[in-house]
């Protein structure tokens, strides 16, 4: 350590890391600065430059007056849709996953492995394979084009993940604690409420963050099963950016993209550790 060659390679290492870091930040930086510029400045100037004239106008436009489809409503109603979708879908799928994980690990029953294998594979399927029959089902249930329909779909296809998370966590749960509680007289619900769940904070956080990020960012179901009243934010944003009519208001697009990014970005900044754990848990099975 401390030799000249070491120092050179150390400097080079930091140089490369910082360069790559800037490259990684570039898209979000571009989104940020250009959402605060007037349109002329983007057209005539440099995308990487800071605004000469700072303005919040694009944000206001993206939020409340931009044309989404046919209505100049801005992203506001769709932001609300996404919240109305995400909150129940996350809570329901997490609760179901917790119960499933508890049952699959703490009770011996025939077929438990098959159930788990089925749930596990369901995590990987391309959703294109279920789009057609699901569209029919939602139609028959009267849920087509509604936020409730999207809640249902995201819960159904989220159970695999949430069950996987809780099952793996509870499989490693100290067996002696469970046995001790049973000897102390705790039954099915009491064991879950008083012993397992209070000691599940990390996996609950991981699961909620994972589900929140996934469902907030979800696009395919939204594009397939919602209409202009029930679009989630991702679909509305895509409509805003890709609608071919009129002048391309890049600054408004960037502001809109930033608005859609904020919730998951905030969650990531506040609890990146749990987000990474979710990624890892989702990738290392069993």
């Amino acid at each position: 350590m401390g030799s000249g060659a070491d120092k050179v390679s150390r400097v080079a290492l930091y140089g490369i890391l910082i360069f790559l870091g800037l490259l990684f930040v570039l898209p979000i930086y571009v989104m940020g600065v250009n959402s605060l510029k007037p349109l002329d400045e983007i057209r005539g100037g440099n995308l990487m430059a800071l605004p000469m004239e700072w303005t919040l106008e694009p944000w206001a436009t993206a939020w409340s007056t931009a044309q989404i489809g046919v209505q100049p409503t801005g992203l506001k109603p769709y932001f609300l849709n996404s919240f109305l979708l995400v909150v129940p879908a996350v809570l329901i799928s997490t609760a179901i996953g917790a119960i499933n994980g508890y049952i699959l690990t703490q009770f011996k029953m025939r077929g438990a492995n098959i159930v788990f294998a089925m749930l596990l594979f369901s995590v990987f399927i391309p959703f294109q394979i279920v789009l057609i029959p699901m569209a029919r089902t939602l139609g028959m249930l009267g849920l087509a084009g509604t936020v409730s329909g999207l809640v249902f779909v995201n819960v159904v296809y989220g159970i695999g993940f949430t069950t996987l998370f809780f099952r793996n966590y509870y499989a490693a749960f100290p067996g002696e604690l469970v046995r001790s509680a049973r000897m102390d007289g705790a039954g099915f619900f009491r064991l879950f409420w008083r012993i397992l769940l209070p000691n599940s904070a990390p996996i609950v956080v991981v699961t909620i963050i994972w589900q929140f990020t996934n469902i907030w960012n979800e696009f395919l179901f939204g594009a397939s099963f919602s209409d202009y009243k029930s679009f989630p934010l991702t679909v509305a944003l895509n409509n805003l950016v890709n609608s071919s009519t009129g002048v391309k208001e890049y600054n408004v697009h960037f502001a809109g993209a930033f608005i859609a990014a904020i919730p998951t970005l905030v969650v990531y900044v506040l609890s990146g550790k749990y987000f990474v754990r979710g990624l890892m848990a989702g990738s290392v099975k069993g």
């Binding site: 990684f24 979000i28 571009v30 991702t234 679909v235 990531y268």
Partner: peptide
Amino acid sequence: AFRSIFLYPMALSFIVTGTAWKWL
């Protein structure tokens, strides 16, 4: 900090990052 920077795109929607890259 470096890890967070390299990993943050995973937290974003492809629609968001697609938009950013589209104009970039």
